[in-house]
Simulated assay, not measured.
Amino acid sequence: MISKPSDLKGKNIGRVIQLLLAKPGTPRVELARQTELTKTTISSIVASLIDLGIAEELPGEKMGLVGKAPIPVRIPSDAATVVGVNLARGSTTGVVMSASGKLLASCVKSVSNKTRADATANLFDVVQRLINESYRNETRVDAIGIGAPSPLDKKSGVVYSPFGLSDWRNFAIGEITEKKFGLPVFLVNDSDGAAFGMKCFGKCRDISSFISLYFDEGIGAGIILKDEIYSGSFGYSGEISYALLKSFCDEPIDNSGLSLDTIVSALNSELGENLGSIDEFLRKGSALGRRTASVIGRVGDELGRIAALVSNIFGPEAVVVNGKLLDFGEIFFEALKSSFESNLFSGDRVRLLEGNNDQFEAFSTGAASYAIFSYLMSKALTD
């Protein structure tokens, strides 16, 4: 398939903006090297971004006795300020973020979003609080990013039919939020957004292809391949909640789906103690001694197998593990790492990294990161 010139232009601009978000202060010559674009193309893109106020030059430091000092280029912090919101099943979390990745405000509302009416009211409430906080700090909000469960259509801003949320079917969350606040709205799968945030502002700045796994309310993944979000053909990918954990789920998973609460329920039965939800299990479990440590090791072993399965399919440079189970520390992670490495086709070529313990913080900052990039791109591509 041959790309249209306009498509290629947009892709090149996107590569430059993404690189400048991840590595502010990169000179033109380094932008050309890392994007594999010509110096002429880079100079044209940078000049256009500077004219639009998306980028700026900084004084260069001369590195030797001969020649001009390279001039660093960056995206100024005030090029975009966005609200990023994670619309989850049991909570709505949000942040205000600048184009430098700095968090300026945050908000958490721990109530159910099971119905469309509740989800809309909670989303609007969190966004309004964050806009008001920004206004008090004399900061203008330019756009809104929303992270939500898949499947969804990023272009139309519609959530189709996420599992367990039947009232959300064909939920035009992008359109109604844009009408409410008069700001551009960018919708992204929650796990995809979190992975994109790692690419722009986190520990994966230098990694072109990686998978970010989330073991928390559910079990899912965000996939970055060659610096871009991989969303699949129908707006979702990385939905690994149905990868069977053979040690804990002898029967087929029912319509509730597989989550860490499913695992904890099985562990409660095995230990003969009702430790409750995943949060309670994490709080109490670390004090229950050797038997619990053995069980946690088995959980790590099973999740390591799932991580290896996903890695074998996509062939990334790294896999990042996120979620509450990281709070168990070395017992859990070492078991996961050992299982992961023993099940990999590629030997020790794929790195395994520890990520964020707080999934919902990662999802809201990820939605903000995606909105920053998308807003700057829309500004750059507007003739």
Rank of each mutant, 00 (worst) to 15 (best):
G289P: 06
G347V: 07
I372H: 03
E361S: 08
V264S: 02
I372M: 04
G329R: 07
A293H: 10
A307I: 07
E302S: 03
L260E: 07
F328R: 08
F333A: 03
G366D: 01
I263A: 14
L258C: 10
E361H: 02
A307G: 13
F363V: 00
A367W: 00
L260W: 01
S265D: 14
R305C: 15
S342W: 04
D327L: 14
E341A: 11
S294I: 15
I296V: 15
T365D: 00
A368I: 00
G297H: 05
S342G: 09
L326V: 02
N312S: 11
V264P: 05
R291G: 15
G323P: 11
V321A: 04
S338K: 14
G366S: 04
G323K: 01
S259Y: 05
L325D: 01
N343R: 04
I331R: 07
G276Q: 12
I296F: 05
F363P: 00
A318T: 09
N322Q: 04
F281T: 03
A266W: 02
A371I: 04
S265R: 13
F333L: 09
L352E: 04
N255A: 08
L326M: 09
S256W: 04
N268G: 09
I306M: 15
E341G: 06
S338D: 12
T365F: 00
E270N: 14
G300Y: 11
S342R: 12
I313F: 14
A308G: 13
G300W: 01
P316G: 10
K284W: 10
V321Y: 05
G347M: 10
A307R: 05
D301G: 07
S269M: 12
S256K: 15
E280N: 10
S364M: 14
D327S: 14
E354V: 12
I306Q: 12
S342D: 13
A371F: 03
R351I: 07
G329T: 04
R283P: 01
E354I: 14
G257Q: 02
E330A: 13
S265P: 01
N357L: 13
L303T: 08
A307Q: 12
R349V: 13
A367K: 02
A362R: 02
L325W: 05
A293M: 04
A318C: 12
D279C: 01
F332W: 01
T292F: 13
N312K: 11
R291I: 15
G272V: 09
T365G: 00
G257T: 04
I263L: 14
I296L: 04
E341I: 02
